[in-house]
Nucleic acid binder design. Structure first.
Length: 285
DNA sequence: AAGCACACCTGCTAGC
DNA sequence: TGCTAGCAGGTGTGCT
């Protein structure tokens, strides 16, 4: 459930907590949370004693850059993906009660803890190396341009849609085409752009790509400003445990059967690629 | 080679 | 009331 806006809100919350702090201890309570590591002990060993120099984000992945080590400042990173239900929570001290499903804990040199909580266990974190301290770590090389920081103009979208039969909503969710969008925000972006989710990508016109780019540029910052979206089942909360409020601004997502806020027609729901799309048959063509 | 199905996992909800 | 079945979500793999 966390998509780009939620990950960015968490990053902005975590950055001042982590930056300049040294990880004095790390603990893995559930091996699956570090399943890309050779062993949980390897992850703990890599992290312990390291200082965080910066945080960044690529799509839905959070990147925590570490100082020191053989590779030099900023080259060793920890990549975090929240999956569907992952949360990074800051505890003021070790005395604070741990939530159920707390799988990884980092203890900082100021006594605070950063805790990775993830009921559905789709999230994970692992150590990687970035050849360029400012660039992307190697495991994230397959991702397309970041939908917030590197969106470019409509030409970029047009070229990624060209000749493809796959539904435009699924193409927008393809992280190798564009990184950061998921089921929630593609629903809202397609609504704003007036494009039906099941349209073949290749049928989307240049003008519609212009509208899609404008919609992405409007929706993502607004969602970040609202501190993300929190829905009933996948309880997204920020680094301080508070839900977001962007769901109050949803036009179509999770609103199937209710009236479209623009034209009043009933919002429809469509099964697509094992997911569900919500859209307005009146406003989206 | 694009596009699809499926596995992964848990908690909530709808339906009986 | 208590149970079960179904669903929800993002990513990665593997098949067609």
């Amino acid at each position: 459930m966390p998509e780009l806006p939620e990950v960015e809100v968490v990053r902005r919350d975590l950055d001042p907590v982590l930056r300049g702090r040294t990880v004095v201890a790390a603990e893995v309570g559930r091996d699956r949370a570090v399943r890309r590591e050779p062993a949980p002990e390897a992850f703990v060993a890599t992290l312990t004693g390291r200082t965080v120099v910066a945080t960044s984000r690529v799509g839905k992945f959070l990147v925590v850059r570490l100082d020191g080590g053989l590779e030099g400042a900023g080259r060793d990173v920890v990549i975090v993906h929240l999956g569907m239900s992952g949360q990074l929570r800051v505890a003021e001290s070790a005395d604070e009660a741990r939530l159920p499903h707390t799988h990884v804990v980092w203890t900082l040199d100021d006594g605070r803890e950063v805790r990775f909580v993830d009921p559905r266990t789709f999230g994970q974190m692992w150590h990687a190396v970035s050849t360029d301290p400012g660039g992307r770590p190697e495991p994230l090389g397959h991702l397309g341009p970041d939908a917030l920081d590197d969106l470019g103009d409509a030409t970029m979208l047009t070229s990624r849609f060209a000749g493809r039969r796959i539904a435009v909503k699924l193409r927008l969710m393809d992280q190798t085409a564009l990184a950061g969008l998921g089921n929630i925000y593609t629903d809202e972006i397609l609504f704003r752009a007036g494009v039906a989710p099941h349209r073949p990508s290749g049928s989307v016109t240049e003008d519609e790509c212009v509208a899609l780019v404008a919609a992405i540029r409007a929706v993502l910052p607004a969602a970040i400003a609202a501190r993300g979206s929190s829905l009933a089942d996948a309880q997204y909360v920020d680094g301080r445990g508070r839900p977001g409020t962007y769901q109050e601004q949803f036009a179509v997502h999770a609103r199937a059967g209710r009236p479209c806020p623009r034209c009043g027609r009933t919002v429809a729901r469509l099964a697509m690629g094992g997911r569900s799309a919500s859209f307005c048959p009146g406003c989206q063509r």
